[in-house]
Computed example of a mutant assay.
Amino acid sequence: MAASMLFIPCFLSGNVIKALEFSLPKLFICKCAPKFAINNALSLPKRHLLPTGVALSKRFGRVCCRSLSSGIVDTISYEFSDSATEVELRLKLGSGDIQSSRDISVDADESSLTIRKHCTESPITLIETNNLYGRIKPAETIWYLDEDQLVVNLKKQDPDLKWPDIMESWESLTVGVAQLLKGTSIYIVGESTEINQKIAQKLAVGLGYTPLNTGELLEEFSKQDVDSWVKSEGVDSVAELEAAILESLSSHVRAVVATLGGRHGAAGRADKWRHLYAGFTVWLSKSKASDEDSAREEARRNIQEGSQGYSNADVVVKLGGWDPALAQTVAQASLSALKQLILSDKKLPGKKSLYIRLGCRGDWPNIKPPGWDPSAGANLSPE
């Protein structure tokens, strides 16, 4: 039986700790009632709603729909496109199903969308999600019927954010986050070497990055496995060697690096993070919490106390258990948190690049001017 899984991504932005609730897209379960509803039917042609000269990126897909009374599940085709300021969703309703705009309801909130069809004995939920890919301006939502299609136009809060699809999913996040990262590498840290390696591999494949494993590199260098090295040389020696490997990897781009867990891992030591700061770090942390609120509080406490090197991570993903079959689910939670982190400060990838160019001196996140000497703790004039 699979272990219960609890994902609570959190991130540290500046000196403010932000906890982010994560849930996979749920088409039929709405945790709270939408705060805003739009039920205006318009018959404007599509060309009046989109800026002229803007090329749309189109995606075709299918979503599940369900009758609220019978529970019968069916699928419905949709077409999605993204322009500079808004996104458009076209749902194929089928001929003869809809007699008028009264047969459709569209409820929108900043991050949620619910579409229902009311032309049968029981309402049918066509789409219900709390995980729109980005945030919208619900008051500016427009929808209308175009023959056998329902067209919904959503105004984006962030015109610069490209939406690969209408909602967050593994497919949309791998495409979207790869663009946001701008080549910046990702480091997976945490107490379990196995989990770190599994998630790093999933992320690398999804993002099109190079998967790297410090454990394998260490064994290749030492010609013995990590456990044997620990027994013969001690945990401190392994941590030192992994830190040297991380230094050699710090200039790499488009890589996902799995680090060692346990006492012999460099990431568990606060003084070994100098080169980990070169990329975005994801801490996969096993949680003892029994619910989401206590898990978020646990994550805040871990970061504030700073008792472990892992507390330096950019993103924390709390795991209520572990099942290798759910590796992609954990990877998706990591991408969702990274996406929100970068959107909170779009200069972060550039700042990581600057940190590398200045030599990974350990002065993250407050990067000192060129010539600063970390060993002297003072600003020196550049040569």
Rank of each mutant, 00 (worst) to 15 (best):
376 A>S: 10
139 A>V: 09
250 S>L: 07
168 E>A: 02
280 F>A: 04
47 R>F: 08
284 L>P: 14
24 L>K: 06
73 V>N: 00
206 G>N: 04
361 R>T: 09
260 L>M: 14
293 D>C: 03
222 S>D: 06
130 N>K: 02
230 V>W: 05
230 V>L: 12
6 L>T: 12
238 V>A: 14
48 H>Q: 06
152 V>E: 03
168 E>L: 07
64 C>F: 08
308 Q>M: 12
308 Q>Y: 13
104 I>E: 04
260 L>C: 10
1 M>C: 07
135 R>W: 03
141 T>K: 11
332 Q>A: 11
162 K>Q: 09
77 S>D: 00
120 T>C: 05
259 T>S: 13
44 L>H: 10
323 D>H: 10
318 K>C: 12
375 S>K: 11
76 I>S: 00
98 I>D: 01
209 Y>V: 04
106 V>F: 07
322 W>K: 12
58 K>H: 06
132 L>E: 03
264 H>W: 15
336 S>R: 11
37 A>K: 11
227 D>S: 10
223 K>R: 14
7 F>Q: 10
98 I>V: 15
230 V>I: 15
95 S>A: 08
183 G>K: 04
259 T>N: 14
36 F>Y: 08
347 K>Q: 13
151 V>Q: 08
40 N>I: 02
380 L>F: 10
74 D>C: 00
322 W>D: 14
27 L>E: 00
196 N>R: 12
178 A>Q: 09
31 K>T: 09
302 N>C: 07
280 F>Y: 11
88 E>K: 03
83 S>I: 00
164 P>L: 01
210 T>I: 12
188 I>T: 07
223 K>V: 10
379 N>Q: 13
373 D>F: 08
245 I>M: 09
224 Q>D: 08
298 E>D: 01
4 S>T: 14
340 Q>A: 12
323 D>P: 11
107 D>K: 05
240 E>R: 14
100 S>M: 05
44 L>R: 11
320 G>Y: 15
161 L>T: 10
380 L>V: 02
55 A>D: 01
378 A>L: 08
302 N>W: 12
339 K>L: 14
365 P>F: 06
50 L>G: 03
216 E>V: 10
335 L>E: 10
165 D>K: 10
61 G>Q: 02
101 S>F: 04
83 S>K: 01
123 P>I: 01
286 K>G: 15
46 K>I: 06
14 G>T: 06
172 S>I: 01
281 T>H: 02
113 L>V: 06
306 G>M: 12
247 E>C: 14
168 E>N: 01
92 K>G: 03
59 R>A: 05
87 V>D: 02
370 P>F: 01
337 A>M: 00
320 G>W: 15
331 A>H: 14
101 S>G: 13
213 N>G: 03
324 P>D: 09
175 V>Q: 12
314 D>L: 05
213 N>K: 06
48 H>C: 06
380 L>T: 02
196 N>V: 09
339 K>A: 14
372 W>P: 05
52 T>A: 11
331 A>F: 12
138 P>D: 04
26 K>D: 13
177 V>D: 01
189 V>Y: 11
80 F>V: 00
168 E>G: 03
315 V>H: 13
235 V>L: 15
339 K>M: 15
212 L>S: 06
226 V>C: 13
377 G>A: 07
23 S>V: 07
50 L>N: 04
326 L>R: 09
243 A>M: 09
353 S>K: 13
212 L>D: 11
267 A>G: 08
19 A>Q: 06
